[in-house]
Amino acid sequence: MTLGDKIKNLRIGKKYTQTFLAKELGITKAMISAYEKNTRKPSTNIILKLCDLFNVSLDYLLGKENDKYLNISSLTDNQIKIINSLITEFKNNNKKHNFTL
C-alpha cells in the first residue's frame, strides 16, 4: 500500500473530507488530492501532523510496519488493564467536551 493509499484510507476511516483534512493541516484540498494520488509527497512536517491527526505511528504511515496501532503483546495483564482504563477515560472526556478531530 502506498503512502497516498494510507492517507486516503485513514481519511475515509475518520470520515474526513479532503477539505476538512486540508484545513486541519493548513494546506489546500488540491494538495490532499495529490498526496492521495501519489503525484506529490507530503513534507516531513505534514507527515508528522498526519500521524498525530490519525493517531498512527510514523513507521506505519511510511510503511516500515503494518500495524497502525500500538502492539501491546509484551505488556502484562495489569498494564493492559491500565491502558484500557486510560482509553475509556479519554473517550468519556472527549464525549463530555464534544471533542472530535
Rank of each mutant, 00 (worst) to 15 (best):
T2I: 09
T2G: 07
L3Y: 05
G4W: 03
G4E: 02
G4M: 06
D5I: 08
D5T: 14
K6C: 01
K6E: 00
K6F: 00
I7F: 01
K8Y: 10
K8L: 04
N9L: 05
L10Y: 07
L10M: 11
R11L: 01
R11I: 03
G13A: 07
K14I: 13
K15I: 11
K15Q: 12
K15V: 15
Y16C: 05
Y16D: 07
T17N: 06
T17M: 07
Q18F: 01
Q18H: 01
T19D: 13
F20A: 13
L21I: 06
A22L: 00
A22S: 05
K23T: 15
K23E: 15
E24S: 04
E24W: 11
L25I: 09
G26C: 04
T28A: 08
K29N: 06
K29G: 03
A30C: 14
A30H: 12
S33A: 09
A34L: 15
Y35P: 01
E36N: 02
E36Q: 02
K37Y: 04
K37P: 04
K37M: 05
K37W: 02
T39C: 15
T39S: 13
R40M: 08
R40E: 14
R40H: 14
R40S: 14
K41Q: 14
T44H: 09
N45D: 15
I46F: 11
I47V: 15
I47M: 14
I47R: 15
L48C: 14
K49L: 08
K49H: 09
K49E: 05
C51P: 05
F54I: 04
F54Q: 01
N55K: 12
N55T: 03
N55F: 05
V56F: 02
V56K: 01
V56N: 01
L58R: 13
D59M: 04
D59N: 09
Y60K: 08
L61W: 06
G63Q: 12
G63H: 15
E65S: 11
N66G: 05
D67K: 10
D67M: 12
K68W: 06
K68G: 02
K68M: 08
Y69W: 03
L70H: 12
L70N: 10
L70P: 11
L70D: 05
L70E: 08
N71E: 00
N71C: 00
I72E: 09
I72Q: 07
S74D: 11
S74A: 14
L75M: 00
L75Q: 00
L75T: 00
D77N: 11
N78I: 14
N78D: 10
Q79S: 03
Q79A: 08
Q79K: 13
Q79C: 03
I82C: 13
I82D: 11
I82K: 10
I82G: 15
N84G: 12
N84L: 09
I87R: 07
E89Q: 06
F90P: 06
F90W: 10
N92V: 07
N93V: 04
N94T: 10
N94A: 08
K95A: 10
K96S: 10
H97R: 07
H97Y: 07
H97E: 04
H97G: 03
N98E: 06
N98A: 14
N98M: 13
L101E: 06
L101Y: 11
L101R: 07
L101P: 01
L101H: 09
